[in-house]
Design a protein around this nucleic acid. Structure first.
Lengths: 206, 206
DNA sequence: CCAAAATTTAAACAATTGTTTAATATTTTT
DNA sequence: AAAAATATTAAACAATTGTTTAAATTTTGG
């Protein structure tokens, strides 16, 4: 029955590349077919429609997007160490996949996938016990009385946004990609210090 | 010659609305015409092409986007007051125009406008003297030895991102719009405290 | 090796895209 | 009020869109 896995995979890889850079509306199925080096009909043969193919790519991207968190949360580190590791790991992950945050947010923004986030995305995170660890640290007075939702917003803002704003930032300051990458590295360190200093009470003064 | 200003303005308003929500690729000129309640040919009569119309809307959006900063920077407040005011003003501005950050970053991301940012955008900001004020404060040891580029990245991340990530955040935490807006208000206060505490040396301890 | 199944292709489909043309309507100028 | 300029419309344009059809090719299983 199944002859060659690689064609289906080649299409997925091409679709990912094209969708990521141009967005769902910004490309045609022929753009993807050209990237594969093949025919348009082949895409529908394997994936039924452009929309179905996109949903597949999006789900994969969302999975990658959240996956990088889970490894950190699953470890048995202290909360502070987890926060620091999360920032480190997220930055190196997005350094490898800089288009990911924009792709995810843009796709959600334009209702390209209006279904609520499936529980199989969220449950693995909840299962790490990170939320309980957070509440316990709060109960012990180790961290500020701030909601985990606000900490999440803080973390995501500072970790995702820089990768989304590369063009704006470069133009705004008139800097090169190299200078921007330097700023990025420095930003990571600032964010780490900033957030741990804010969140962890006993450590506001070294 | 000019008979009625309102048609041209009506088209601009409709185009702004449609482009903002759907993006350049996500809408057709007929979508805009329908929003105006008129004909497709009329758009090209006034604006020559979809692309030209978009560039106009984009420039206006970018102008609004940067304008809200300039008022704050032009005042004769202290640097700390300016930072606090900037965060306040930016938040209330984006509360009124929540789609703006996503529209700007997405448009730049997809090279919908590849021209470098015109100097008439940047110069008004430089002319406020904010950069000099920053360097002087640094020389006097009032603030940390951190580049203004990194402070900018910090501010933009925390001010823009929350408005871009509304759908992701709501789905992630399974919360309502009202709850999200509450988080937003709290986020603003956190960011203000966080950044001033980090940046201004003498004020790390109240 | 041969038939059946799976894969790949080229071509066609109707619908939609941005733009233009040419005719009609409205306003302005004289 | 006549003429000129401006504004608005409907219709058509070729190109591109996502999808389907049907034929050709390749692979698989007996």
């Amino acid at each position: 029955m199944k002859r060659d896995q690689s064609t289906e995979e080649k299409i997925k890889a091409a679709a990912k590349k094209v969708f990521m850079t141009k967005g769902f509306d910004g490309c045609s199925v022929r753009d993807i077919a050209k990237e594969v080096g093949s025919n348009v009909a082949l895409l529908n043969y394997y994936f039924r429609s452009k929309e179905k193919l996109f949903e597949l790519i999006f789900e994969g991207a969302m999975s990658d997007f959240l996956q990088s968190m889970i490894a950190v949360f699953s470890s048995d580190l202290s909360l502070k160490e987890k926060v620091e590791q999360l920032i480190d790991k997220e930055f190196s992950f997005f350094m490898e996949h800089p288009e990911l945050p924009m792709f995810i947010l843009q796709s959600l923004h334009q209702n390209k996938t209006d279904a609520p986030m499936p529980s199989h995305f969220l449950e693995p995170i909840a299962n790490t016990g990170i939320f309980e660890q957070f509440e316990q640290a709060k109960a012990r007075g180790e961290i500020r009385d701030v909601s985990i939702r606000n900490v999440t917003m803080l973390l995501m803002s500072n970790v995702h946004y820089p990768f989304m704003s590369k063009k704006l930032t470069k133009q705004f300051h008139g800097i090169s990609t190299e200078e921007f990458d330097e700023d990025l590295k420095k930003h990571k360190e600032i964010v780490k210090e900033l957030i741990t200093n804010y969140l962890f009470i006993s450590n506001t003064k070294a």
